[in-house]
Amino acid sequence: MSSTVVDRPAVRLQPTPRERGDAPLVRVAGLRVAVDGGRREVVRGVGFEAHRGETIGIVGESGSGKTLACRSLLGILPHGAARTAGELTFAGIDLAALSERQWREVRGARISAVFQDPASYLNPSIRVGRQLDEVHRVRLGLSRRDARVASVAALARLGLVDPERVAAQYPFELSGGMLQRVLLAIALAAEPEVLIADEATTALDVTVQAEVLDLLAELRASTGLTVILVSHDLAVVSQVSDHVYVMRDGRVVEEEPTRRVLGRPEHAYTRSLLDAHARYGIDRLYGTRPPGDGSEAGA
């Protein structure tokens, strides 16, 4: 589902960590993932970086390898898929060398994720508040009473009206947008440093999609959260990302700051994505002046 791009002008008062050359919080280099018992390589030397407090977008069509690349960062590749090469580092930790016990200390606690179709990640027979309570109890060691207080507060923080009532409902009683907010509350319960949002807005209508994107931007601004936004939709990615990585056939074919990718795409595939979205007004991101018209020389 495509999304209308709205104008969100950014005011830069100082260089970003990426512009300063700071060490990235997340770094993937030379990542290779194979399926079918190693007979078919589907991620071919992928690399990307995300700095603290930054939102990066990873965009590509279905089958481009973007989801497998990000699932590698969580240590949850599907059955039959395996990392065959590459570096995965987070806050100086070599993720590729972690044991399963060590993974559990990182996954969900410091790196978390939300995915498409949130209903499939919630137990349909348990009220959503209880599911969120459990995360607060296991991850933060809260008592039953304190966990419920934290859960209701989390639902309220994510913009759900009457959070006490929402907590008492089952997943099937909530809309797609409400379910995605619940899943975000669960993903953010342990206050992770990185959130991977993998096609998290794909199944939502345009209005709710925009609300969720705004929510991610607000969370990033208020908490310093680093967001890795994965989507097949360049219009979605361009709304909130500082830096974009374009993937095709298991490789990164282009990576630049968002303004530059939108204004001066170098790869034919990126240009085809822009052409496909021309009707949705990507050029309006920066007003009537098209990015890359010479006004950002030296950027």
Rank of each mutant, 00 (worst) to 15 (best):
A23E: 15
A23F: 07
P24R: 04
L25M: 00
R27A: 07
R27D: 08
A29K: 03
G30L: 10
L31M: 10
D36G: 01
D36H: 02
G37N: 01
G37I: 00
G38I: 01
E41N: 08
E41Q: 15
V42Y: 01
V43T: 11
R44D: 09
V46H: 14
V46A: 13
G47D: 09
G47I: 09
G47W: 06
F48R: 10
E49V: 05
H51W: 15
H51M: 06
H51F: 14
G53S: 04
T55D: 00
V59L: 09
G60F: 02
G60T: 12
E61Y: 04
E61T: 05
S62A: 05
G65S: 14
G65E: 06
K66V: 15
L74Y: 07
L74I: 02
L74Q: 00
L74G: 07
G75L: 09
G75Y: 09
G75T: 06
I76V: 15
I76L: 09
I76D: 00
L77A: 13
L77N: 13
P78R: 04
P78V: 12
H79Q: 11
H79T: 13
G80I: 13
G80M: 10
A81E: 03
A81P: 05
A82E: 13
R83M: 15
G86I: 13
E87S: 12
A91V: 01
A91F: 00
G92F: 12
G92H: 10
I93G: 02
A96Q: 07
A97P: 03
L98G: 03
L98Y: 12
S99V: 12
S99W: 06
R101W: 11
R101D: 15
R101Y: 07
Q102T: 03
R104H: 05
R104E: 03
R104D: 03
V106E: 02
V106W: 04
